[in-house]
Design a protein around this nucleic acid. Structure first.
Length: 260
DNA sequence: ATGGCCATAGTGTATGGA
């Protein structure tokens, strides 16, 4: 089963890229972030035409998340939950559903804007609440194993940053953010990307400015965390840079994980 | 020199992203 996550930075603008990419890569489930669409504008019909069922949680202008599943291979998403029951949040950043026997949790972590700002405090509180909710899930065996995937807006280590000194302590790289990423792992998850040999300077986001992609001036902030119980079934994990090379790309590349 | 781009709402230019 091939599962992926992609911050598309407007599904309206990127729908063509998403459809082309799904067709080319035989993706069974796709977690989307920053759809930037209200639910009435979600392109469910076009996706259905392409063979994908969708569940989504949107709002005007900002945020917005969705989970797509390939009808022919894994069927429609079930047991859909929007948001975190432990954390009232008007921002649509979280949607979860069962697909192909796995619990997928699609997350768009807050950006945080600047260390010490109100948005930064919101980011940390949002992550703490996510952790608390995930910890409440029934014990393994009683429910589907979980894949937590999305745009975490955290570069976990210096090797995930193109210029670690320039980014030292900055938003996306600050120690409190990294500590929270590590705590999500310590709770019993594995960073699927780091289970495998990867090229040095592997990133999932590149700034639109300053020829960021051409210079590979990027960050690895999009992640797939699998429950430790799932790790033996993970066959591969990779970042696909191809869509970042297209005309009018998202600034993020998709991350694909293959699970038996 | 610390910005440069992109999307949205909406038709100016501000906000947010990372």
């Amino acid at each position: 089963m091939k599962i992926a996550t992609w911050n598309v930075n407007s599904l309206r603008v990127r729908l063509g890229h998403v459809l082309d990419w799904l067709a080319a890569n035989e993706i069974d489930a796709l977690a989307l972030q920053e759809t930037k669409l209200t639910n009435d504008k979600f392109p469910a019909a076009a996706l259905a035409e392409a063979g994908y069922d969708a569940v989504f949680a949107g709002q005007p202008t900002y945020n917005g998340v969705a989970i797509l599943s390939r009808r022919a291979t894994v069927g429609a998403p079930t047991a859909v939950l929007r948001g975190n029951p432990l954390y009232e949040d008007p921002q649509q950043r979280l949607i979860s559903a069962e697909v192909g026997g796995l619990r997928l949790v699609c997350a768009y972590f807050p950006n945080g804007q600047e260390v010490g700002s109100d948005k930064y405090e919101y980011k940390l509180a949002w992550i703490d609440a996510l952790r608390a909710w995930l910890a409440q899930r029934p014990a393994a065996g009683a429910a589907a194993a979980t894949v937590l995937l999305g745009d975490f807006n955290i570069a976990p280590e210096d090797r995930d940053v193109h210029d670690p000194e320039a980014w030292r302590g900055a938003i996306l790289c600050s120690e409190p953010e990294r500590e929270r990423f590590r705590s999500l792992l310590a709770d019993g998850r594995v960073d699927a990307f780091r289970m495998f040999e990867q090229a040095e300077r592997s990133y999932s986001w590149w700034d639109y400015r300053q020829l960021g992609f051409r210079r590979n001036a990027g960050l690895r902030i999009d992640h797939v965390l699998v429950d430790a119980s799932l790790a033996p079934r993970v066959r591969a994990c990779a970042i696909d840079r191809a869509p970042r090379k297209l005309e009018k790309p998202s600034d993020h590349a998709p991350v694909i994980v293959e699970i038996d």
